[in-house]
C-alpha cells in the first residue's frame, strides 16, 4: 500500500502531535495539574504510528499503560487526551481512567491497561470473539519487553496458538522494564525467541525508529495472520528518551546512551526521509509543526476550562446492567 504525499504528511503530523502532547504533558505534570503516574511515549512515536497506519478498521488494538501515542494515532483528539490527563469529565474516559487508561471503543482501541502483562490474555479473548463470530479482524496487542517475564504473557501467548487466534503479539522493546535492562530481567535478550517455544512464527525489527520499516513489518505480520495462519509475534526495537515515568532519576543508564539514541529520533528520521525523497518540502513540515502547536495549545485550554466530574456521578459507571 503505497503512501501518497498527504498520507505521509498525516503520519508526520501524528508523530509530531504525540511528541508535542507529551512534552506539554510533562510541563502540566510538573505544574501539578496532572496527578498519578505519567508515562511518556517520546522516542517511540514511529512504533504506534506505524502500527495504527497499517491496520484495517476491523483490527482491534490494545496496549499497556504507555498509551497516549496509540490514543492520538487512532484519532482521539488532543483535547480528549489532555482532558483525561487532567481528570476532566470531557476526557476520553470521563476522568475515570487517567493517563494509563485511555480507550475509544468506537475507534477499535481497547485501552490502556496498567497491570503489566495482564492485557495479553484479554487480547486473546478479543481475538477469540472475532474468530467465534467469523470476522476477519486481527487483535493487535502491544506490550513492553518487561511484560514478557510475567506469567500472564505465557498463558496468553500459549492459548493464542492452541486456539489459532488472530492476534498480533507486538513487543515494543524499549530495552528497560522500568529501570531494569532487558538482559537483567529476561532469560533471552531476543524477546521474540520466546514465541519459538509456543510454535508461533516470530521476527525482530531492529530499527523501530523508522516508521517505514515499522509499517512494512507490521503489514507483513497482519497479512500472515489474516490469511488464517494464526498468531504472529513481532518484536520492535525502540527506545524511550524520557524516564519510565515522570520523576524517574534514570540512575540505570548513562547519558551517552540516551544521546546516542536521540540521534536516531524517529521524527528526525522521518523528516529526513520526507524531505530527502522530495515527498514534501521542509516548509510543508514546518507548517504541520505550527498547526500542531496551535492544536495542543487549544487542547490545553479546552482541558483546563472543562469541568471536573460531578460528585453526583461517582457511581454512574459501576454496573453496565440497568436496574
Amino acid at each position: 500500500m503505497a503512501l501518497k504525499k498527504k498520507d505521509h504528511l498525516e503520519l508526520y503530523r501524528q508523530m509530531v502531535l504525540i511528541r508535542r502532547v507529551e512534552e506539554r504533558s510533562a510541563e502540566l505534570y510538573q505544574a501539578g495539574k496532572i496527578g498519578g503516574f505519567l508515562h511518556l511515549y517520546i522516542g517511540q512515536e514511529a512504533v504506534s504510528t506505524g502500527i495504527v497506519s497499517v491496520r484495517q478498521p476491523q483490527d482491534r488494538i490494545i496496549t499497556a499503560y504507555r498509551d497516549h501515542g496509540v490514543a492520538l494515532n487512532v484519532g482521539i483528539s488532543a483535547k480528549a487526551v489532555i482532558a483525561e490527563l487532567l481528570g476532566k469529565e470531557t476526557g476520553v474516559s470521563k476522568g475515570r481512567g487517567g493517563s494509563m487508561h485511555m480507550a475509544d471503543v468506537e475507534k477499535n482501541f481497547w485501552g490502556g491497561h496498567a497491570i503489566v502483562g495482564a492485557h495479553l490474555p484479554i487480547a486473546a479473548g478479543m481475538a477469540l470473539g472475532d474468530q467465534y463470530e467469523g470476522r476477519d479482524g486481527v487483535t493487535i496487542c502491544m506490550f513492553g519487553d518487561g511484560a514478557t517475564n510475567i506469567g500472564f504473557f505465557h498463558e496468553g501467548v500459549n492459548l493464542s496458538k492452541v486456539w489459532n487466534l488472530p492476534v498480533l503479539w507486538l513487543c515494543e522493546n524499549n530495552q528497560y522494564g522500568m529501570g531494569t535492562a532487558v538482559d537483567r530481567a529476561s532469560a533471552v535478550e531476543q524477546i521474540h525467541m520466546k514465541a519459538e517455544g509456543y510454535g508461533i512464527p516470530h521476527s525482530r525489527l531492529e530499527d523501530g525508529m523508522d516508521i517505514m520499516k515499522v509499517r512494512e513489518a507490521v503489514g507483513a505480520a497482519l497479512d500472515h495472520i489474516r490469511s488464517g495462519k494464526g498468531p504472529y509475534f513481532l518484536e520492535v526495537m525502540t527506545y524511550r528518551f524520557q524516564g519510565h515515568s515522570m520523576g524517574d532519576p534514570q540512575r540505570y543508564r548513562e547519558k551517552d546512551e540516551v544521546t546516542k539514541w536521540e540521534k536516531s529520533d524517529p521524527i528526525g528520521i522521518y523528516h529526513r526521509y520526507i524531505v530527502g525523497d522530495k515527498i514534501a518540502a521542509k516548509a510543508d513540515l514546518d507548517k504541520i509543526e505550527e498547526a500542531v502547536e496551535v492544536e495542543v495549545n487549544e487542547a490545553i485550554e479546552f482541558a483546563e476550562a472543562s469541568p471536573d466530574p460531578g460528585f453526583d456521578t461517582l457511581y454512574d459507571y459501576m454496573y453496565a446492567s440497568k436496574e
Binding site: R60, W110, A118, L120, P121, I122, A123, A124, G125, M126, A127, L128, G129, D130, Y132, E133, G151, F152, E155, G156, N158, L159
Partner: peptide, 15 residues
C-alpha cells in the same frame, strides 16, 4: 489467568 482473562476479552467484544 487465561481462562478468566480470555473470558473478559471475549465478553468485551460481544460474547
Amino acid at each position: 489467568s487465561a481462562i478468566v482473562g480470555a473470558g473478559i476479552g471475549a465478553s468485551m467484544v460481544g460474547l
